[in-house]
Design a protein around this nucleic acid. Sequence first.
DNA 1: CTGAAAGCGCTTACAG
DNA 2: CTGAAAGCGCTTACAG
Lengths: 344, 344
Amino acid sequence: MIPKQTVNMTDVAQHSGVSIASVSRALRGAPGVSPTTRDRILSAARELSYVVSPEASRLSGGLTGRVGVVVPRVDAWFFSTILAGIADEFDTVGLDLVLCTVPDSTTRHRFFEALPLRRKVDAMVVCSLPLTAREHTRLEQVGVPTVFVGGHRPDDDRSWVGIDDELAARQAVGHLVRIGHRDIAMIQAADDADIPWATDQARIRGFHRQIADAGLADPTVVTVKWSIDGGSRGMEMLLSRPRLPTAVFCHSDEIALGALRTLRKAGVSVPQHVSVIGVDDHPSADLSDLTTVAQPVREQGRIAARDVLHRLTGESSVSGPSVTPPWTTLPTRLVIRGSTAPPR
Amino acid sequence: MIPKQTVNMTDVAQHSGVSIASVSRALRGAPGVSPTTRDRILSAARELSYVVSPEASRLSGGLTGRVGVVVPRVDAWFFSTILAGIADEFDTVGLDLVLCTVPDSTTRHRFFEALPLRRKVDAMVVCSLPLTAREHTRLEQVGVPTVFVGGHRPDDDRSWVGIDDELAARQAVGHLVRIGHRDIAMIQAADDADIPWATDQARIRGFHRQIADAGLADPTVVTVKWSIDGGSRGMEMLLSRPRLPTAVFCHSDEIALGALRTLRKAGVSVPQHVSVIGVDDHPSADLSDLTTVAQPVREQGRIAARDVLHRLTGESSVSGPSVTPPWTTLPTRLVIRGSTAPPR
DNA sequence: CTGAAAGCGCTTACAG
DNA sequence: CTGAAAGCGCTTACAG
């Protein structure tokens, strides 16, 4: 019942009395095999539990059946959820997901210079990373279709899926303004290495624009490192100032959760003394009763994966840019919970 | 400066004026190459940004440089943190991580019957999954070393790293007993398909044993699905009973967080009316001021990865079982926060 | 230490 | 429709 360790195409060919060329054609559904022969081959393959060797297939011009996914890190809700979305789609078609994490600038540099994915994957998905021109060039040298998720949207016809981060920030700040706040601060988050991530820039831009649109001036902004602890620190900075703003817009929910922790420890009640709002709709936002602007994360992963499949199996690329840019911008949505209320 | 699309071993050989055999040896660090020649080859390879074709390497008997990691899902803190730990180690040695998610029994069945990792990886890491004898057999047929993380510890000489889940439960319940609780309930979590996961069984066993050791009898246990919502539901079930216990031991922090949410909505104060304790030290536990028993998760991933490296590069397997079983049991640690207090 | 050659398991023109 | 054969890019005995 259990097949021997190594069944190859030759075995299948012998069992069905044809050449391996025909087996190869039949198994891939290629034309040039009579229905009878095809059936015979297919059942022989099934009987032997035959699995094509991806190595050999790839080596002779076929595909690897693997897609590289590049993320800054896995142990963060956003990225693991994107990954889950990608995995959802890949599982159904049998594509293998090769995970690449590039947590810091050293790793990132090494990654782009060594191009470890080269010849190893049929396509790539790159999440959120801010890329230099050089890095983009290197990426192109991998020579496979690439889909981007979040972060900076390419200007050319490369695929991208994400949200409008500036709009998300505006939605959050707009809500604070609408319920009466006039003194709104922001806790902004930044990369350790001061690399300008598109998301960060868009969110603070949205903050300033919405503040300006509301006729407010000179808002306080404190900048901290990404992470819950960064958020805590940010709120400590705000608390150390002469006057606490009536509302705080946080770069993201993780920042906001850290901010809430500091407030709880300091005995400042939310939303009575200060309103707090984030962005993302992290699972903990619900637990902490945090008002936020939700973005569909898993769906971004799914769409990116489908885009990859499309590029892999879809129509061959015609020269010239496509009629519509291959960008998908998913909607964000204000989720009002208990951490925001009109100022007293 | 920028290398052409396809640099192969022949190119490197030409650039360094040797045969591809020597290149192959030099690049793999195999013996039989003079230091001078090796250096020349290495710098030529670097200059050309050469990357070995894993396909060709594997096809001719070498390794793929890939390790399969099997997890139930990625979008859960525990598994994404394990993954991060594995990635930490793999990154430093250039191993590729092929991610396989088997969220439900259908996927799991398909995974073990199709053995999609076969001929694709040099080793495997399997996280937490409860495996049937059949599944273990199938896993062996992949024919590569396999390391297990969490869940059931194999009885033979296969590698395993994890914690003592029964002890963790005992630590949690022991704390409740120590501060004076006599009426302790448990919210237990279970698989959708009622598959007995080793972790779940060990935790409830630890609960019952610790309760018995304390001379208490007949504790209330409610069983819910894994997830924060399951935890909420579990606490609703406890609240609907005639009398609320003075303390609740939750299968894990996610269950506990859901339970806390229900209590907050119901207006039951913690720890004044009821104490709550979990297991894991999920990042949100700190945010929610939840007492818990911490386990080192990322470290489990790191150890599993190092174990894989060891099996891949280390001493060849001598016949017969090794002297000490290749098991690593990491310590767990009680973390007291604000969700537990003596009963009133 | 070094190289020529066989072979890994496929795919794909190229002939029949 | 079918098969013989070349070739993908490596590794590994086997000779020098």
